[in-house]
Design a protein around this nucleic acid. Structure first.
Lengths: 145, 145
DNA sequence: CATATTTAAGACTATTTATTCCTAATTAAG
DNA sequence: CTTAATTAGGAATAAATAGTCTTAAATATG
């Protein structure tokens, strides 16, 4: 199941890197993130530009510049990140693509699919980047592979 | 969340039409399905060709030809259909795309994502096309929109 | 001020997915 | 046997997504 686009996958991985390995200085360079994770520098830059526009990141140009979280990792929930990367309507889509599917005009799998999406949203809205960063730092989980 | 490709969405909708509105004769023509659902005839034909190759459908050419289920709708579970349409590895993918993600090398969301996929697989493996077809016929749910 | 480092912006290219189209093969029916 | 109605096969086209590249702008530092 391809639930995230490449933008979503790379963006999330890169953000988690930033959270898991925060720099001593104020900003972490995109180059370090992309090199360390083996992702395309240009592609990550493009993704981060969007996250900066949306207010999730702040960026700073010039030597020792880079990007940083716009607010504490404790306050950034996965839900916000995924919506920023995939679009605000991410959890509103009908599984089989019926544009007016809803409780009034449910498609054959509407109820079940709604349950699944609710579970996802609920979990994502309670999972902070800080928590995941900590799990990465303690090597309970991994970001590379 | 775009969980299914267009092939998956259209294929599932077309199959459900066949189950919900079985023809008096042995075969239902693709033209009728695509016209009724407002889908591209050629695209549905291509999708059905694949399902025929995979043994889910049988087809018959010539006048009063068309397609039919290869086995009773009671015996075809959603899981089988989705795997046929989207690939057998549909439920094996890491959310953030790490190729070796698994219990040995879990990504930061591995456990939760596994739960979600298990729930999906479980439900899909217990939902038959016959059940959904019946719900459509009784207008409890809808296929068009 | 000159240079090096970094992100910003957006054009460009490549790849994948989606969709259409044309021709062939099959078969029923007159 | 001819015609019409179908699906089969696969080429061709279009659109969306993914990824690369080049140039500009900002800024620190010597």
């Amino acid at each position: 199941m391809k639930a995230l686009s490449q933008v979503g996958k790379y963006g999330l991985r890169a953000l988690l890197y930033l959270v898991a390995y925060p720099p001593d200085s104020q900003y972490l360079s995109i180059r370090q993130i992309s090199d360390d994770l083996g992702l395309s520098f240009h592609f990550v830059t493009k993704i981060f530009r969007e996250l900066t526009e949306k207010g999730l990141l702040i960026s700073y140009r010039g030597p020792s510049g880079g990007i940083a979280l716009a607010k504490p990792a404790e306050e950034i929930m996965l839900l916000e990140v995924i919506k920023a990367l995939e679009g605000d309507d991410y959890f509103d889509k009908c599984l089989i693509g019926l544009p007016h599917c809803g409780s009034a005009k449910p498609c054959p799998v509407h109820e079940f699919w709604k349950e699944v999406k609710t579970k996802l949203q609920h979990n994502f809205s309670e999972t902070s980047l800080a928590l995941l960063g900590e799990k990465i730092r303690t090597q309970e989980v991994r970001l590379d592979d």
